[in-house]
Every structure is written in structure tokens, then in C-alpha cells.
Design a binder for these strands. Structure first.
Lengths: 344, 344
DNA sequence: CCTTAACATGTAACCGGTACCATATTACCT
DNA sequence: AGGTAATATGGTACCGGTTACATGTTAAGG
């Protein structure tokens, strides 16, 4: 790699002058400026980001910690973060925590020693206590904000209400909920939304709530158990889209059809939902927007324009598709713009 | 951040001694060692990766450039890279090139100025010429190797043969191919595999080959055009899984069923294939293995154990599922282990 | 007991930039 | 012309580590 010294030599000036040219600060005579620029071109010189970082303690890098990159929710988020970061001159280091606290802590340590400027953390296991020693800007996803950290999330409770009410409107008379893990914040909120709608219905029964770990396989098992009870379930609100797809598969294996026998709605709005047959109704989170906002916020905090932590809540929207369309209007409305751009 | 100087002061030794303790090299008296370790603990000191990098010109970082992280193929790959990298003490910077040469070049420049130790590049647009000035280890995905760069890929040609023959075995009598972009290496190879099997069949016709851009929407359109020809297609080999899903949707919209009317097989083996109904037969690439091997290779090259470039080809395997099961044996075999672990 | 090698630790140059300070030159004003 | 301000450039300490070299101490061997 060619260094600033070689450029200085070639241009016949000092390193200080070269530095001034690069950063366009301080006084530099027009003719000198060009001489230096020319040398830079000639040698194909690029300043070492490492050396720069050592001085100003900024690396123009942000860390993104996700529980699982293979869950379709997160690539959409990661894409937003990467794009916004890039367009602001930052790069993104991606870490996969597998959802365990131990990995998260380790990765945060590592990111700190690499001097990232800030961290965006999507954590299931977050407890404020565990992150006390983190002393750089950190934005949380799907968590309530605390005095130290900003937070980006949606109104999961309201989403739960919306989903459940939608099933009622579609004529469902006994609605089950396939909830996410009991210790996960978003899962709790969605469950509460469901409960608030159904708890006073005469048909409501605790046996209508099942739990799974937000994953597909687990959801299939749990749904089969729900249906084996034979209590006349004709609608299922799944805690996320992946589990909703599990529901579809379980229902299919019972020889029942969706939405005729059982209507199904998911939560998240991942692009998978309009790839499958039948297309899946869902409560859509503005995933890209959330990633974008998280990145903007962390950059604000890094660059010091913003000191106090913010709590940003996005709206969820109901996307009705085939899987809950029991009213058989031909050509159901589809609020989702198809935004697939898989390339391979 | 606490520096080595503060540790030295606290332990009552010089920075050199602290450095020796950290790196466990050189002579350090047992008692001194412990004194220093204690000070490190006390101050919760971590060496600055930046400063270390400035010395040894190694950042323990590798860059991964992908055309599109929201395409399900790539998160699986990224996960492998991240895990293997991490377990070798490396971190991964992720870049989304959107498949354009311009972005790729820009991102490589950026990665170089950040002094990444190596790059793994999954590129559709790669032309050796464009990367002449890249002077750090780089491993290519889905490209033939060249003298400068190692390559990881599968035998796409053979996969095309396998898929096509499988459809024949299932009793298909007129097989179409929905190919990927004409200028993409993998797409060409898969098409050639298909052609080698069918070109001598009496029913073969150029009109059986359609092109789409490896994406879902485009595949739906293309499939509809194929079917509108009304030439009795009863089997489709799609160039990748995403397009196969597009086929499914298009076929469904014609009121036809899979596999009874038309059998469909994809290519890639993304986990999506066993989430949908009907489950999709596919030519599976060992995605995780490929990411793992790419990472191992780049690390070898970085650490200088390996200088010559290697061309590593993986085998593809046929996974038969419902979408091609025309022989109606109840309970088709499923070679794919379900490895979903979406968490959300 | 003296010599020599192994052990132990400190000093300082260096990695590649940035930025403060010093010095030199030019421009402008009275 | 003389003084001051603005312009132009160079020298160098510093960021936080690593490491070659110097120096001092201890152990071993004859």
C-alpha cells in the first residue's frame, strides 16, 4: 500500500500539505493542490482508514447484531441498515448472535475493541443490567427504550388486536393464538393484544393459546396439538409469519383447507408471505423503514447531534390476502406492494 | 477507553511488559505477569484493534460482497461465513452490491482502504479485467477460478442434467426450462445441462426455453408466457428456487395443479423450498458448506499458508419432494434435513 | 569466584495519518 | 516604507499499540 509519505515525496511537498489536500482544510495554493492531486492519482493512493481512525477515534463503522440472519425478517432489515449506513459513509459489520446472551456480550466486546462507532442490537434476551458496561451509542430493536438507549419498534399490542379483530370480521367463531416464546418481549405484547379482544368472548378458552419458538418446525407441532384438541378452531393468529406458514402446513396435513376451514394470519410482513400459496394475510411491520430509522438514529447519536435517547414506534398495517379471505370476493385486495428483488 | 499506558502505570511496569503479557511472548516473570493481568482485569482493558492493525497491517476482518442479501440463498451463505470467520477470530463486513459492477468496485475500494485482510465476492458481473487492481486475497463464488483468485462453486451443468432427467423419470413428456439471465455464469451452465438432455428428443423446441432474471415476479410473467403457448408443457425446470416458486404461482393462476398437471423443480436448495405447499423439489447446493469452505480458503490465503489459487467444486444433490412426485407413492422421500431456525 | 547464557524489563522508533505550532511569503492598508 | 493580516508550507508530537535493542539481573557451569 502506498502511504502519504510517498505521495508527499512524489509531489515534492510535506505530508502535512498532502493531508490538507486530502481533507480540503487549511491553506493550500492552487498549483500545489493540483500537484498533490496528480501524485495521488498517479500512485493510486488511498488514505489508510486505520491510521485515520487511530487519530480521531472514529471508524465510520457500525455493528449490527441479529439473532438469526437466516430468518427472512432480518435480511430485509440488514439491507436497510447497510444501504443507509453506506450512503452516509459508514460500513456495517454484521454479527449473528444466535439469540444467546453470551454471544451478544462477546460480540459487543469485540465490536468495541474494533472501535465501531455504534451498535444496532436486535436482541431477544436483552436485559438492561447486562449491558451496563457498554459505553458507546446503541440502538435497540423491538425493546422499550431506556435512558441510555434509543429504541425502534412497532406497536405489537395493537397489531395483535388488529389481527384478531380481522379474523372475527371474517366470520371466525373460535380463534386460536400461536404465541412466540414467553420470555420474548414482542411475543408477550402480541399475545396481550389477542387476549384483550377475546378474553370476554363466551367461547374463549385458555386451550386456544399455544406456544412455539417463533420457528417453523415448532409451529407445525404446536398447531397439530391445537387442532388435535378438536374444539372447533376456525381461525389462527400466529405470532409471526414463519409460524403462520407452519400453521398452513399443519392444517394442510389434516386435510383441511385455508381459508375455508381455518383462516390464518401472521405477523411481520416478510416478503415470503406473498410467495406462498395461499398468500398469507399478515400484520406488516415497515421493516425497511425500521432499519433505516435505526441507522439514522445511531448516526445522529454517533455524530453527537442527538444525545437523549428516543423511543420510536412505527405503525403496523393489516395486509389482507388469500389466507383469511373467507368472504370469497373474487380478487381480494392486496395492500402489499411486491418488493421482491431476489437475485440468483 | 483505557489504554496500555494506564495499565502499565497501574501495574507499575512499562508498556512493553504489558504488551508481552497480552501476547504471551518474550520473557515475563511469573509474579509480574500476574500483576499485569490483575491490572488488566481491574481496568477492564482491551487492546485497541485499530492500533494493533496499524502495526501489523492485519485487521482480522474479511469483506463479504453479495448481490442481494434479501435473496434467501445469501443469508444462508452469510451465516456460514460469519460463523467460520468468528471462530477463527475474524469479523465480517457485509456489503450489498445490488449486483452492479459499479457498486462492487466501489465497495472493494472501500474495503481495501479499511484494510480488510481478504474478500469473498459473489458476483454476477465479474470480469477478470475489472479487478486487476485488487491486490489482496479474494475468493470468488460461482465463478471459474483464475490464476489470481480461488473459486467455490457447484457443478451447475450436472445439476441441470440431474433436474431434467428427474422430470423425465417422473413421466414428463414435454419439459420447459425457465433460465436465469443470459449473461450470468450459473444460468448458462444450468441451461446447457438442460439442453444436453433434451436437445435430441423429438419433442424439443426452442420455445420451451424462457428467460427471467432469477427473481420471483419476473418468473411468474415468463411462466405465464410459456403456458400461454399451449404446447403441452408438463414439466418445468426453473433456474433457481425463487423462480420455481414463481412457476408454482403462475401454474396455480391457470387453475392447474402441481405436480399432477405440471411438475416443477428448482435449483439451489434454499430452506424456503420445504416451507411452501407443495414442497418443492430442487437441486440442492451445499450452501453452508460452500460458505464455510470459502471462508477457510480466504483465511488460508490471508495467513499465507496457501498461495496458489484453488478451484473447489461441490456436488449438487437431487432433493425430491411433492412438486415432482407424480408417481403418487404416499409419503415421498425427503432428502432434506429441515434446518430451519428462524427466530422472530 | 568469574564468565556466560538465560531471563526480565525498560526505552524508543515505528506503523500512517492528523493537527498544532512555527516559519516564510505575499497582500493589503495607512 | 513599515506593519499587520492572510496565505502557504514544513516540522513534529501524538493516537495506542509492537518490537528491536539496550541494559540489568539471575542462574548455571567450570
Amino acid at each position: 500500500m502506498v502511504t502519504i509519505k510517498e505521495v508527499a515525496k512524489k509531489a515534492g511537498v510535506s505530508v502535512a500539505t498532502v493531508s490538507r489536500v486530502i481533507n480540503k482544510n487549511g491553506y493550500v495554493k492552487e498549483s500545489t493542490f493540483e500537484k498533490v492531486q496528480h501524485a495521488i492519482q498517479e500512485l493510486n493512493y488511498r488514505p489508510s482508514a486505520i491510521a485515520v481512525s487511530l487519530n480521531n477515534k472514529k471508524t465510520k463503522t457500525i455493528g449490527l447484531i441479529l439473532p438469526d440472519i437466516t430468518n427472512p425478517f432480518f435480511p430485509e432489515l440488514a439491507k436497510a441498515v447497510e444501504e443507509v449506513a453506506n450512503s452516509n459513509g459508514y460500513t456495517m459489520i454484521l454479527c449473528n448472535s444466535s439469540g444467546t446472551l453470551k454471544n451478544e456480550i462477546e460480540q459487543i466486546e469485540m465490536l468495541q475493541s474494533k472501535y465501531v462507532d455504534g451498535i444496532i442490537l436486535a436482541s431477544d434476551s436483552y436485559v438492561e443490567e447486562d449491558y451496563k458496561h457498554v459505553n458507546l451509542p446503541m440502538v435497540l430493536l423491538d425493546r422499550g427504550a431506556n435512558p441510555r438507549n434509543s429504541s425502534i419498534r412497532v406497536n405489537n399490542y395493537y397489531g395483535g388486536v388488529l389481527a384478531t379483530e380481522h379474523l372475527l370480521e371474517q366470520g371466525c367463531t373460535k380463534i386460536a393464538h400461536l404465541a412466540g416464546p414467553k420470555d420474548v418481549f414482542t411475543a408477550q405484547q402480541r399475545l396481550e393484544g389477542y387476549q384483550s379482544v377475546v378474553e370476554d368472548m363466551e367461547w374463549f378458552d385458555k386451550k386456544l393459546v399455544a406456544y412455539a419458538n417463533y420457528q417453523l418446525e415448532d409451529a407445525i407441532t404446536a398447531t397439530k396439538e391445537l387442532l388435535n384438541q378438536n374444539i372447533g378452531i376456525d381461525g389462527i393468529f400466529a405470532g409471526n409469519d414463519l409460524m403462520a406458514i407452519g400453521c398452513l402446513k399443519a392444517i394442510h396435513s389434516f386435510g383441511l383447507s385455508v381459508p375455508e376451514d381455518i383462516a390464518v394470519i401472521g405477523f411481520d410482513g416478510i416478503s415470503l408471505t406473498n410467495m406462498i400459496i395461499p398468500e398469507l394475510s399478515t400484520i406488516k411491520q415497515p421493516i425497511y423503514e425500521m432499519g433505516k430509522e435505526a441507522t439514522n438514529q445511531i448516526i445522529k447519536e454517533i455524530e453527537g447531534n442527538e444525545t437523549e435517547s428516543r423511543d420510536i414506534e412505527f405503525d403496523v398495517t393489516l395486509i389482507q390476502r388469500e389466507s383469511t379471505n373467507r368472504k370469497r370476493r373474487p380478487g381480494c385486495e392486496d395492500g402489499a406492494k411486491s418488493k421482491d428483488n431476489g437475485n440468483r
